[in-house]
Design a protein around this nucleic acid. Structure first.
Length: 353
DNA sequence: TACACGTGGGA
DNA sequence: TTCCCAAGTGT
């Protein structure tokens, strides 16, 4: 470790002591000085929820999960169905399925306690390079190189790294490894992330307030906004389909469970056609999974990560028993608690408006 | 390596 | 409106 990276760590930790964010899953440096320790379960739960997800979106889900399942043994005792219902709306649903699998594995193979090394953590479902390092550093004071999107941005600017992501990740990780101090590695990681979230932002970074502004190569030589270098984005294709909202005399809505793999795996849905990239796909009422007096209720648009979906929505009042194998009627009082992804809530809202 | 995998908020 | 993106992982 060279002198300048050691100085960076001290500078950053001093900044963090004053300017850290207060977050529900976090133990502040002040509280840590009083002897409070982070709960590995809470660190893990928050890290999984925060993957590709904003702090603001996570907060209510974190509070709800912690209230329902305060410990990992209680989460392991829950059903996957209940976990998916609680996760509904947060997105990337494989995280929720892996969360449950991870809890099961820790109860079964680790005596109900989180392993403390990055290697062991990485073997758990849903825990990759970043999360393993984050848990090891934050919960267990391990000297682990934590690299997330914030830290990639901070480090690539500080060193004016011209290699595009993700190829630059190896170099960034080596730099972070050298910068990470033996003392307070968890606070150091969180400090780097807070710096990225609060000052070293993707657009219009607040360089005047940055504790690294006299050392930042991007600021000195060009424009910090140009870093990190990323590959060009691909255009989003459009897929089309139809959604069929069947309503019984009590106002219940017919739902079914999606397959256990692929998009929205294991989540609930109203019956739909396939979602096709073809413009001439069958998306009218004749494509419904059963015949009924389908009424057109307009269309909805929903943007997924890799395609845009346009669904024509149809509604029918149906009196008979569930006309589909393994589908069920969800009464008005229960619909909010179903494992419905946002796209399906939109379709239902369009149908019953 | 490249792609699948959600969502909502801000500019 | 459109675009960007926010504490990544699995395959």
């Amino acid at each position: 470790m060279n002198h300048s990276t050691t100085a960076h760590a001290e500078t950053l930790l001093n900044w963090y002591d004053k300017h850290h964010r207060s977050l529900p899953w976090r133990v502040s440096p002040q509280d840590r000085n009083r002897g409070e320790r982070p709960d590995p379960y809470r660190i893990w739960l928050s890290e999984i929820m925060l993957q590709q997800t904003t702090v603001q979106a996570v907060k209510p889900y974190f509070a709800d999960f912690l209230k329902r399942w305060p410990t990992i043994s209680e989460l392991a005792a829950a059903s996957e169905e209940d976990v998916l219902k609680a996760w509904a709306g947060l997105g990337y649903y494989s995280r929720a399925r892996n969360l449950k699998k991870c809890a099961d594995t820790i109860m079964r193979d680790h005596g109900g306690r989180f392993p403390q090394t990055t290697e062991a953590l990485k073997n758990l479902p849903g825990i990759g390079d970043y999360t393993a390092a984050a848990i090891a550093a934050i919960a267990f004071d391990s000297h682990a190189a934590v690299v997330d999107g914030n830290i990639e941005r901070v480090i690539s600017r500080l060193n004016a790294i011209d290699t595009p992501l993700p190829a630059a990740k190896t170099e960034i990780k080596a730099i972070v490894h050298d910068m990470t101090p033996e003392e307070r590695p968890g606070d150091f990681a969180q400090a780097l992330m807070d710096l990225g979230a609060r000052l070293c932002t993707p657009k219009r970074p607040a360089c005047a307030l940055c504790p690294f502004n006299s050392d930042c190569e991007a600021l000195a030589s060009s424009d910090p906004e140009l870093y990190p270098v990323k590959p060009a984005k691909k255009a989003k294709p459009v897929r089309r389909g139809a959604a069929f909202v069947a309503v019984d005399s009590a106002g219940a809505i017919l739902l079914r469970r999606r397959p256990d793999s692929g998009l929205l795996a294991g989540m609930s849905e109203v019956p739909t056609t396939d979602w096709t990239a073809r413009r001439d796909g069958a998306t009218g009422p004749q494509a419904a999974p059963f015949s009924a007096d389908w009424q057109a209720k307009g269309s909805i648009k929903h943007v997924f990560t890799h395609f845009e979906l346009r669904l024509d929505v149809y509604r029918a009042d149906v009196k008979a028993n569930p006309p589909l194998e393994s589908a069920w009627w969800s009464p008005p009082g229960e619909i909010d608690g179903e494992a419905l992804p946002t796209v399906m809530k939109k379709a239902i809202a369009a149908a019953i408006s």
